[in-house]
Nucleic acid binder design. Structure first.
Lengths: 337, 337
DNA sequence: ATGGTTTTTGTAATCGTTTACATATTTGGT
DNA sequence: ACCAAATATGTAAACGATTACAAAAACCAT
């Protein structure tokens, strides 16, 4: 492998000049620039990243710690982050914390060890409580999950509002005994629960929520359990795409038709929600935009470390489909909560 | 930040001893070991990775280059790889090449720059042709995509056989004019096409295949186009999960019911294929196992660089669902190819 | 031409480890 | 008790870049 001194020799200049050309620093003559570039080409020189990082105490890397890579939401976010990072010649270390606070802590340590320029994180509830960007040697931007008072840049959906609108939509379409299945490991689930509860209360309806770990299996099991009891609820509502999948599977397995017997609605406009007849009503999130906003926030924070904490709040869009169609008096089971 | 010499001072030993303890080398007395470990704890010492990598010319990192992170197949593979890597205290750099040979080459360069111990790669067709593990300064294990004669360790499905069985199943259930939609960027798509074509030929049926870039949008568009023409085909077959999604969307949009008018089948047993009534017939791949086999192959290769090239071929399982239900003479449109 | 700026270039120190080699210590056989 | 061999420890030289500082060259107004 060619080293910088080989390039210097080949170009007939000092190593300092080579380094300066490669770093794009000013104050180096055009003739030297040309000769260095030619030598680099000639020798196929590639700088040693370890040496560079050791000396300069800097990397061109950012970290992305997602809470569950199986969740299509996060794969889409990671694509957005990668795309933008790529354009800025930054590499991305993608880590999957699996909704596990310990893994999260471990990966945050790893980010420190790797000397990353910054981190984008979708924290579990445990990590979020008391989280302060200042406690880390790099800027942190939160994505998808964030409390009102968290001291960190963040990009989130207006969860309370979205869940409120989704719930209100169900109520207005005649569904009154609505059960909300939400993940407890994330602030997002709790906020959506809050929006749901507020909407229910506003119509004088009783709140029925099931807290659970946000996985397909747990959601399916919880829904199956609930659907065994009588009277049946009017509607099942999911606080995330994964949970919605579990609820849908439970309805299919128990052969309960929606919306005739029980309505269904939830979060995330994933392709399959359109395919499952008669279509599932959801809140659509601008996922790619969320990811892009996160990395742009991070880049700005890296450029200006001292600027005030900022928060980007995006609005979800209600996509009405058959699963929450207006109840006709005829088919509905009386709602006698 | 504490450095190794601080630890040495605190423990009253030399830096060499500290380094030896941390590396777990033999030949260091228990008393020193204890003192060093205590000092490390005390000072919260964390070794500088850049320095370590520079000096030792080694990293504890492996690379994983997937061709499309949106494809659930690859998210599951990456989970498996991460899980095993994690157990071996290896970090994983995950890169998404987006079915783009240029990005693939770029990421392979990056892996070289990062001095990774090895790479797991799902190559595009372009990169696969003429691919030799020897051409890289690290071992490479291919996953999902590989030619018969590629000189590299690999983990793949028996694609030809799986597609053959899937196609035969359709034929036996009365579907004769079957159109195969397959991605051209991957060897996998071509191999599955081969299995399909062989099965069709074995029954004296005409091959109708549509080659396209393996994305949902392109598959949907191609299917829509084909479904506009008459006579309608008997069945639509997809060579991947993404393509299958596109075909399903096209059928829904054109309001063509399956299997009554046109049957449907494809690859990858994703959750939604069960939910879309009456269920979609697929070849189920043991995805997690594929990922695990890949990293285990890589670890073995790293341990024994000279051992013979190995290939793990897994078998796909045919999951019969309603979308390919046996044709009854009554509902079928005559097959007059 | 001259001396003072400014700009360009080069030399050598430095980043924080690992590890080759030298030295000190222990061990064990006589 | 002694010496050779084995084992434990320490010293200092790498690893390959960046960059502070010094030196040289170029520029410009007098």
């Amino acid at each position: 492998m060619a080293q910088i001194k080989d390039v210097a020799k080949q170009a007939g200049v000092s190593v300092a000049s080579v380094s300066r050309v490669l770093a794009g620093h000013a104050g180096v003559s055009e003739s030297i620039r040309q000769r260095v570039l030619a030598a680099v080409q000639e020798l196929e020189y590639r700088p040693d990243l370890a040496a560079r990082r050791l000396r300069s105490r800097q990397t061109d890397t950012i970290g992305l710690i997602v809470s569950d890579i199986r969740n299509p939401f996060f794969t889409e976010v990671s694509r957005a982050v990668e795309d933008v990072a790529y354009q800025h010649r930054l590499r991305v270390i993608l880590c999957n914390a699996d909704e596990d606070p310990e893994k999260e802590a471990l990966y945050l340590d790893l980010m420190r060890d790797e000397n990353v320029r910054g981190v984008i994180l979708s924290p579990t509830f445990a990590t979020l409580t008391g989280f302060r960007s200042h406690d880390y040697p790099f800027p942190v931007v939160l994505v998808d999950r964030c409390d009102r008072d968290t001291a960190a840049d963040a990009v989130v959906l207006d969860n309370i509002d979205a869940a409120y609108r989704l719930t209100t939509h169900l109520i207005e379409n005649g569904y009154r005994r609505n059960i909300f299945f939400y993940g407890t490991t994330s602030a997002t689930g709790r906020q959506r629960h809050e929006g749901y509860a507020t909407a229910m209360a506003a119509h004088g309806l009783e709140v029925h929520a099931e807290a659970l770990p946000a996985t397909v299996d747990r959601a399916r099991a919880a829904a199956r359990e609930r659907l065994r009891r009588r009277p049946l609820p009017d509607a099942l509502v999911a606080s995330s795409g994964l949970i919605l999948l579990g609820l849908t599977e439970a309805l299919r397995e128990t052969r309960i038709r929606f919306p005739d017997s029980v309505a269904l609605a939830g979060f995330d406009d994933l392709p399959w929600t359109r395919l499952v007849e008669p279509g599932i009503t959801v809140i659509a999130q601008p996922i790619y935009d969320i990811g892009r906003a996160a990395i742009e926030l991070l880049l700005q924070r890296i450029a200006k470390p001292e600027q005030a904490v900022r928060r980007v709040v995006l609005r979800g869009e209600l996509v009405e489909r058959g699963s929450s169609a207006k109840r006709t008096g005829a088919t509905a089971s009386a709602s006698m909560a």
